[in-house]
Simulated scan of single mutants.
Amino acid sequence: MCGRFAITLPDDAMARLFQAVPANDLPPNPNYNVCPTNPVAAVTSDAGQRHLRPMRWGFIPQWYKTPADGPLLINARAETIAEKPAFRAACRERRCLIPASGFYEWSKGAGGARLPWYIHRADGAPLAFAGVWQDWEREGERLTTCAIVTTAANAPMCAVHHRMPVIVEEGDWAVWLGEAGKGAARLMQAAADEVLAFHRVDPRVNSNRASGPELIEPLAEAD
């Protein structure tokens, strides 16, 4: 799964990287501890024009009467996304890219302690998570919401967790966004083993209130 991530790339740099028109109300950046229900920046494509726009991280199915009417859907499993009623239409029609600098995952330590890790691209480039999105509206309240697509972890990541986000390489962005015909399904797989690197970080990130660049720094004397 993916339950937290960091984004440190400035808005204008994100817009240039994805060749997208940025919205005026993007969420504050940098954010070293993006949590579920937080606003995130996502890239969508409309008739070939890409947009960088804010979305709530936590997909709301159309049948929810309130945003809290059911489970919080922050992730969509690649193996079942095309079949699940919540995601089926979005998988076909509303795919997005969610930029990130890295993400957090937790392994279990002695006595069941939660040991946080920061995972990022080995080459230092930004990540582009595969995502799906949709608008939800009830009684005048309207939210644009998204979920990150996840898949079974690759071999290195299995040492930390059995799931990981689907990471879309730059050459495949147009396919995932629906600009270059069909083929999105083949992208929903784990990144190659050499793409990611990871290191232990301070357990302070276990709190969703923690913030600051020190959250992604390697933990000194990690076990």
Score class of each variant (00 low, 15 high):
Asp46Thr: 15
Asp11Lys: 15
Pro61Tyr: 11
Val205Ala: 01
Ala147Pro: 14
Met55Pro: 09
Phe59Ala: 02
Glu137Ser: 15
Trp106Val: 01
Ser211Ile: 08
Asp172Thr: 10
Thr151Asp: 15
Leu177Val: 13
Cys91Glu: 14
Ala6Ile: 10
Pro85Val: 08
Thr151Trp: 12
Ala210Ser: 14
Leu9Gly: 03
Arg88Ile: 04
Gly124Val: 06
Ala110Ser: 14
Thr66Ala: 02
Arg95Ala: 03
Gly58His: 11
Ile60Leu: 04
Arg209Tyr: 12
Lys108Arg: 07
Ala90Arg: 00
Leu143Glu: 15
Arg186Tyr: 06
Glu214Val: 11
Arg77Cys: 03
Gly111Phe: 00
Arg16Asn: 11
Trp176Pro: 14
Ala130Met: 03
Ile167Tyr: 10
Glu170Gly: 08
Glu170Ser: 08
Gly112Met: 07
Cys158Thr: 15
Val160Tyr: 12
Val168Tyr: 01
Gln19His: 09
Arg163Phe: 07
Gly102Ala: 00
Asn206Arg: 06
Gly140Tyr: 13
Arg50Leu: 05
Gly3Ser: 00
Tyr32Lys: 00
Ala190Leu: 02
Ala78Lys: 06
Arg77Pro: 07
His199Asp: 11
Asp123Met: 12
Thr150Ile: 14
Pro61Trp: 15
Gly70Tyr: 09
Gly212Ser: 05
Trp106Phe: 02
Val40Phe: 09
Pro67Ser: 05
Cys35Phe: 01
Asn208Trp: 14
Leu73Val: 03
Ser45Thr: 10
Ala100Phe: 05
Ala210Asp: 05
Ser207Leu: 07
Leu177Lys: 11
Ala90His: 02
Ala113Thr: 13
Lys108Ala: 07
Trp136Glu: 07
Ala110Glu: 15
Trp117Tyr: 14
Ala197Phe: 09
Cys35Thr: 12
Ala42Lys: 06
Asn31His: 09
Ile74Cys: 01
Lys65Leu: 08
Phe87Ile: 08
Gly111Asn: 00
Met164Tyr: 08
Ser101Asp: 08
Val132Thr: 10
Pro99Phe: 05
His161Ser: 12
Leu196Val: 04
Glu221Ser: 11
Gln19Lys: 13
Glu179Ser: 11
Arg16Met: 10
Gly181Ala: 08
Pro54Met: 12
Trp176Ser: 13
Val175Thr: 15
Arg200Leu: 08
Leu196Cys: 01
Asn38Cys: 10
Ala82Tyr: 06
Val205Trp: 13
Pro116Gly: 01
Ala90Tyr: 00
Val195Met: 11
Pro61Leu: 05
Tyr118Trp: 10
Phe59Gly: 03
Phe87Pro: 03
Pro126Leu: 00
Thr44Phe: 03
Pro85Asn: 05
Ala13Gly: 09
Asp202Glu: 12
Trp133Ala: 09
His199Leu: 02
Pro165Lys: 06
Ala20Gly: 04
Lys65Gly: 06
Ala82Glu: 12
Trp63Phe: 04
Thr151Met: 11
Arg53Met: 13
Thr150Trp: 15
Pro116Met: 01
Ile74Pro: 00
Met14Val: 10
Ala159Asp: 15
Leu219Ile: 10
Gly124Phe: 05
Ala197Val: 13
Leu187Tyr: 02
Leu9Tyr: 09
Thr80Ala: 01
Leu115Phe: 00
Leu17Ala: 07
Ala110Tyr: 06
Pro99Trp: 10
Cys96Pro: 13
Lys84Tyr: 04
Ala42Val: 14
Ile148Gln: 02
Ala86Asn: 03
Arg209Ala: 14
Ala86Gln: 02
Pro71Tyr: 03
Arg114Trp: 04
Leu196Gly: 02
Arg163Ala: 12
